[in-house]
Write a protein that binds this DNA or RNA. Structure first.
Lengths: 147, 147
DNA sequence: CTTGAAGCTCCAGTGGCTTCAGGTTCCATG
DNA sequence: CATGGAACCTGAAGCCACTGGAGCTTCAAG
C-alpha cells in the first residue's frame, strides 16, 4: 500500500520529454481543448501535474494507434464523465471496442506475414522468395466496409 | 485448384468502391508514387486490374492502422523487390515487426479496459463506476521511447 | 443523338501538427 | 546582483495527407 509519490510542477518541456511530444503539440492540444489549460506561474508559464501527464500519454498512444482526435475526445469523455447517461457511454465504448478488435485482427495478420518473411529469409540464406505483405493486408475479408 | 478468375478493367470509381477510398485519394496516391500510373482508355480514363486493387487495399489497411506513407512505401518495397539485398529487407521487416508487436500490445490493453467497462456497466445497471481508459493507455511501460 | 453519371485536370481548403519570428522569463554562474 | 543562454510565451505561416469544388470531357443507356 505504498502511495506512489505524485509528480507535480512539470514545465511544458518536462512534460514534452516524458511523453515524447513536441512542446508546440502540447500547446496545440490545449488550444483545441484536448488538454485542459494548466495553471501558470507568475511569469505566465504553464505548470502541469500528474493528471496532465497521464492524459497526454494516453492521447499520444491513441494517436499513434491511428485514432482520430474526435475518437480520442470521445474516449476521454468516458473518463471525464463517469456518470454519463448509460446509453452514451455504452455506445461509445462498444463502438471503439469493435474498432480495436478489428485493428488487432489486421495487425496479427501483418505480424504473421512479417515473421514468415524473416523466417524464410534465414532459411534460404538471404533472399525473400515471395513477399506476401500485400496479400495479407489486402484481404477483403478484413475490410470494415466490404461485403 | 480452381484458378480464381482475375478482376480486370476496373474504372477508378469501381476501385474506389471496392476499397472504400475516395476517387481523389486514388489519384493522389498515383501522384505521390504509391500506386503506379495505370493504363488509360482512348478517352484518357484510368483502367485498373487486380494488382492495383490489392495494392490499394493494402495501403488503406496500413494507413488505417496508423502507418505513415513512408512506412508503407518501405513495406511495398519488400513486395516490389523480392530480390532486395538481404540486409535491407531484413531490417525493414524486423523494424516493422517490432512496431506491429508494440501496437498489438497497446491495443490489447485498451480492449481489455473497454471490455471491463462494458461488463461493469451491465452489472451495475447503467453506470460506469470508474473509467480507466486513460490509465490503461498512459502506462509508461508501453512507451516506445520511455525508460 | 441526347442526357446524366462518371471521368479528367487543376487548385483551394482542412486536420493535425510543425516551424518560424520576435519577444519574455528563468536560473546558474561570474 | 548582473547577465547570458536555455526554455518559455504568442501569433502566424507552412506541411502532409487527403478532400472538395470548378469547369470541362467521355461514356453508355435510352
Amino acid at each position: 500500500m505504498t502511495k506512489t509519490l505524485e509528480i507535480r510542477d512539470l514545465a511544458i518541456g518536462d512534460l514534452a520529454r516524458r511523453t515524447d511530444t513536441k512542446v508546440q503539440t502540447i500547446r496545440y492540444y490545449e488550444e483545441i481543448g484536448l488538454l485542459p489549460p494548466p495553471t501558470r506561474t507568475e511569469g505566465n508559464q504553464r505548470v502541469y501535474g500528474e493528471s496532465s501527464l497521464r492524459r497526454l500519454a494516453f492521447i499520444r498512444h491513441a494517436r499513434d494507434l491511428g485514432f482520430s482526435i474526435d475518437a480520442i475526445r470521445e474516449l476521454l469523455k468516458l473518463s471525464d464523465h463517469p456518470d454519463l447517461p448509460c446509453d452514451d457511454a455504452d455506445g461509445i465504448a462498444r463502438r471503439h471496442l469493435d474498432e480495436v478488435e478489428d485493428r488487432i485482427t489486421r495487425l496479427r495478420a501483418l505480424r504473421k506475414e512479417l515473421k514468415r518473411m524473416l523466417a524464410e529469409h534465414r532459411d534460404h540464406g538471404g533472399r525473400i522468395a515471395d513477399c506476401k505483405v500485400i496479400e495479407v493486408l489486402s484481404d477483403h475479408g478484413l475490410c470494415k466496409h466490404a461485403h
